[in-house]
Design a protein around this nucleic acid. Structure first.
Length: 727
DNA sequence: GCGTATCGCGTTTTT
DNA sequence: CGCGATACGC
């Protein structure tokens, strides 16, 4: 057994182990084996590293991997940790049980049979499906008519799920957060009842149900509680500040026989209260688990001091927080920059031009990110980047499983698992000619009530116009019931769907076709259709064709929420204007503080350079233009912590699309320049900086160039689009 | 008159 | 993408 290998200064280092150094606090956290531990960790303090090492440490001290439960919020982060722990031990950690709260809930509920009358057979529905149900119910209840200001289904769903997660009656919640909706309270309560009933009748479980059922399993079935609690002797929870009350209860109950819980979190990064996360959970942890050891991780391993000073100042005015004093030993002195653009267009151009410049100075594109509050804030920038030929990846927008054509295909498969899945039936029926919402709903309601749904479909009295379509559909399902291999089923669905698909999406058919091919690859890795369906609802796979994943040198555009836990060398935060950040509806009410933390999360993603940008002239909801100031969070900052960039000091090419698109193409086609093509004193031409002389060659492929107009720059030859004028 | 097809526009954040 | 308003066909 390798013992104490994890703290590099205190033990022997076995060969082949890629050891990351731990500091003293991290080491203490890693090596505390029994009893509750709360780790308060600042941004970039090596939380993940600490958890990874702890998994390895426990296994090294005789804890069987299957007794370790690692709870995270995204599957990606669970996978990353297990992979790194496996590396550390020169072994795989596949037997460690690591996953998302929802994934583990699904596993346990199927194993023990879900309480609440579901049995062990249910279909997990994602948020879009839940919205669909609410919409369906709204129209059947006659709500949302023309003149009435009934709240949108998104708000309704947030309220319903908020009530579950916060264990509050819905009317309290409405008083608390949605006072402007109080006149609709009766309708909302009624809708909630209908929604719960609908799910139960159709064997559908949403995210909230997964958790409440897990909690009830633990709380109400003593044998299950004992079995689960003894099975998982060590529980670790990442991002504890993002847990809601139900999740906190789950953790307490799961640990009921041993209290071996280690929770890691940063109260300053709590940004998910809208989905029930309770900021005070992390404050309460020591009370829930008496004798908790509290360990603080205060050293920052990500950002330079100027960035850290600015982010500390953002959080300085927060109301409640654990006091942490973050420090760093990372060197670097680039002060964060603040750019006040005239309007959105100039903001977009500034960011695009600056990205191009930084990229050509040698920073790879995948080390640059642009962050914003809401998905649509980046629209202008997306246009600008596309015009300039810069490749980017947008996150936090549409997921693969949210695009219409993928949903279509999944619907067939989901019906096979759960023939009473009304939403999927609806979707498929609507594809047929001459069947609209009304007809589809009629057919669906008959099918859902039937004991033999497929037979009912085949014998449904079809109208003359759509008889043929119905017959084809019935034939497909008859055919599909002959096998249970996921990839064979997929092919059968495509045999039926492809002709429809071509006419349905005639305009962008090839692009969507690629997505479907990708889906086929993913589905082929599954042995059971059930697992595939669950996974796509819980954590949709990313859209990434094989070719792109090899060469993924892409700039990232992301909502701040989707950027949590990640880091980049260079980060731009855009749209930091009044009325955009904080979100307008947060201005009164309890959301204000959370918006501040959101800005904190955004700014702490940056390692070396941080740019804060805002447009001074913006279109308002009523489509008029108004002059606005910078976000109130920026106004609070001490002025010395950032430099202002004046708009007039930054010139940009007024016609980027014509000039700039042609340059990269031409350079790509011609052979790449290497160090052999250059020597000291060579004259080169750069599309942005103009002419300059090479002053120094840096192995393996960088050069210093003194530009006539822009001074000395270090450029990376793989990225800079240089032309040699004189060797 | 009911139901289906079509076009234009606005969009908080999401496991 | 999805909603609402409007236009067309049975």
């Amino acid at each position: 057994m390798r013992t104490d290998i994890l703290f590099s200064s205190s033990g022997p280092v076995p060969a082949g182990v890629n050891l990351e150094q731990l500091n003293e606090s991290q080491y203490r956290a890693v090596t505390t084996t029994d009893g509750p531990v709360l780790v308060i960790a600042g941004a970039g303090s090596g939380k993940t590293r600490t958890l990874v090492h702890r998994v390895a440490y426990l296994m090294d001290h005789g804890v069987a991997p299957e007794n370790i439960l690692l709870l995270t919020f995204t599957r990606k982060s669970a996978q990353e940790m297990l992979w790194r722990a496996g590396n550390l031990l020169n072994d795989t950690c596949q037997r460690v049980v690591g996953g998302t709260f929802h994934g583990i809930a699904n596993m346990l509920l199927r194993r023990y049979g879900a309480p609440l009358g579901y049995g062990s057979s249910f279909t997990i529905i994602d948020r879009a499906d839940a919205e669909g149900i609410v919409n369906l119910l709204k129209s059947s209840m006659g709500l949302g008519g023309k003149g009435r200001q009934f709240p949108s289904r998104r708000i309704l769903l947030n309220m319903i799920s908020g009530a579950v997660n916060k264990s509050l009656p819905l009317d309290d919640l409405v008083h608390d957060q949605y006072s402007h909706l109080i006149e609709h309270l009766d309708d909302i309560l009624n809708l909630q009842i209908q929604y719960e009933e609908f799910k139960r009748n159709h064997g559908l479980m949403d995210y909230d149900d997964l958790l409440t059922n897990w909690k009830r399993l633990l709380a109400e079935v003593p044998e299950a509680r004992t079995a689960i609690s003894t099975r998982f002797s060590h529980i670790m929870v990442d991002e504890y500040q993002d847990t809601n009350l139900v999740q906190a209860d789950i953790i307490r109950l799961t640990a009921s026989t041993h209290d071996n819980v280690m929770a890691v979190g940063d109260d300053s990064q709590s940004i998910y209260s809208f989905r029930g996360a309770d900021f005070y959970n992390i404050m309460r942890f020591p009370k829930i688990f008496p004798d908790t050891q509290i360990i603080k991780l205060e050293e920052n391993y990500r950002s330079t001091q100027p960035i850290l000073s600015l982010t500390n100042d953002i959080i300085r005015n927060a109301r409640d927080k654990y006091t942490k004093t973050l420090f760093t030993r990372i060197e670097g002195d680039l002060t964060p920059k603040l750019f006040a653009a005239a309007d959105e267009r100039q903001e977009a151009r500034f960011v695009a031009a600056k990205i191009r410049q930084i990229h050509e100075e040698g920073t790879p594109l995948e080390e640059i990110a642009v962050l914003f509050r809401s998905g649509f804030h980046s629209f202008k920038l997306e246009l600008e980047l596309a015009a300039g030929g810069l490749d980017f990846e947008k996150r936090g927008g549409l997921k693969l499983t949210e695009s219409a054509h993928i949903k279509d295909v999944l619907s067939f498969l989901r019906i096979l698992i759960n023939p009473r899945d009304t939403l999927s039936w609806n979707r498929i029926l609507l594809q047929l000619e001459k069947i609209g919402p009304k007809t589809a709903q009629k057919i669906t309601s008959v099918i859902a009530r039937s004991d033999e749904p497929f037979a009912t479909l085949a014998s449904y009295p079809a109208g003359a116009a759509w008889k043929k379509g119905m017959a084809a559909l019935a034939a497909l399902f008859k055919n599909m019931q002959e096998t249970d291999s996921p990839s064979v089923l997929f092919d059968k669905v495509m045999g039926y769907y492809e002709p429809l698909f071509v006419t349905l999406y005639a305009d962008d058919y090839p692009k969507r076709k690629k997505d479907l091919e990708q889906l086929k690859v993913i589905i082929a890795t599954y042995e059971s259709l059930q697992t595939f369906i669950d996974d796509t609802a819980l954590d949709p796979p990313e859209v990434e064709s094989g070719a792109e994943s090899v060469d993924r040198r892409k700039l990232v555009l992301s909502t701040i929420h989707s950027a949590k836990g990640l880091e980049w060398m260079v980060v731009f935060v855009i749209g930091l204007a009044e009325g955009r950040f904080p979100h307008p509806s947060a201005e009164q009410g309890g959301q204000w503080e959370e918006e501040r933390r959101l800005l904190y999360v955004a700014a702490t993603r940056a390692k070396k350079r941080l740019y804060l940008c805002y447009p001074q002239d913006m279109m308002m909801p009523d489509r008029s233009f108004h002059r606005v100031g910078m976000s109130p969070f920026l106004r609070e900052l001490q002025p010395g912590l950032y430099d202002r960039i004046k708009a007039e000091n930054f010139s940009y090419d007024p016609s980027p699309s014509a000039a700039k698109v042609s340059v990269p193409v031409a350079v790509k086609k011609s052979e790449k320049i290497t160090l052999d093509d250059l020597s000291r004193g060579s004259t080169v031409l750069h599309p942005f900086f103009g002419e300059g002389q090479v002053s120094r060659l840096i192995k393996p492929c960088s050069v210093d160039i003194a530009f006539d107009k822009h001074g000395l720059k270090t450029l990376h030859l793989d990225y800079a689009k240089l032309k040699v004028i004189k060797r």
